[in-house]
Amino acid sequence: MLLDIKDLSGGYGSKTVLHDINIEVDRGELVGLIGLNGAGKSTTIKHILGLLPVKTGSVRINGLDLTTNETEYRRQVAYIPEQPMLYEQLTLREHLRLMAQGYDVEEAIATERAQHYAERLRMTKQLEWFPSVFSKGMKQKAMILCALVTGSELLIVDEPFVGLDPLAIRELLQIFSELKQDGKGILMSTHILETAERHCNRFVLLHEGHIAAEGTTTALRARYGLQDGTLDDLYVAAIEEAEL
C-alpha cells in the first residue's frame, strides 16, 4: 500500500477535526477526496504532509513513517497545493532544479523531465520568469511542474484545476493517467465532481471529520440505490445519510 492512513485522529491544537479515519491509496490508483467545505479534506492533507501532529493513529507512505525517517518520507510524496506557493526569488527553472535536487533526482533525468512537462503544460517560455509576473494559472502550472519533476511515488493534489485553462486541465488529467500506469498513486481533493467521476478510481467522502462513504462509483450507486446516479447524486445522498 502506497498511502496507508490508519485510525487517524487529528486537527489543530486541542480541536479535533478528524475522527478515526482510514484511507488507503494503492499504486496505480487515483483516489478522489471529496466533501463539503470544512469536512476535513485539507486537514487530512496536512497530516499526510506532516504539517500537523497526529493525535492517534498513523500515516505511512510506502511503509515509511514521518517520525522515523523524515527526509525519506518526504521524498515519497509530492504536493500540488490549492494556493500556489512559490519562492519569489527563484525563476521557474530554478524551482525545478531545487525540487529535483532536494528529492535526489538524477540531474539529467530532472532536466529531461522538467523540459518534457513544461512543454506539455505550455510553460517553456516561462522557465526563466519569476513568479511575480505569473498569472494565477501559470502559478498553478508551476506548482504542478514542481511536483511532477520530483517523480515521487505519491502525489497529493488539492483542487488542481482551479485557475487552469481547459487545455491544461485536459493535459493534467492525461498526465495523471500516465502516472497511474507507471505505478504512482494520487490522492486528489476536489469539488469538481464531474471530472472526478470520470477520472478517479475510487472516492473517499469526508463529512465533519468522519468518512461518510467510500468506494467506486458502482459500489456507491449500489449502496444508495441510485443505479444511474452521478457522483453529484451520490454525494448528496451520502451527506443526507450522514446528517440523519
Binding site: L49, R75, Y79, M85, Q89, M99
Partner: peptide, 15 residues
C-alpha cells in the same frame, strides 16, 4: 527568514 518561513521549505526534503 523569507525562505525559512515559506511553506515549501517546511514541506520538502531539503537537507
Amino acid at each position: 527568514k523569507a525562505v525559512d518561513q515559506h511553506l515549501l521549505t517546511r514541506l520538502l526534503p531539503f537537507g
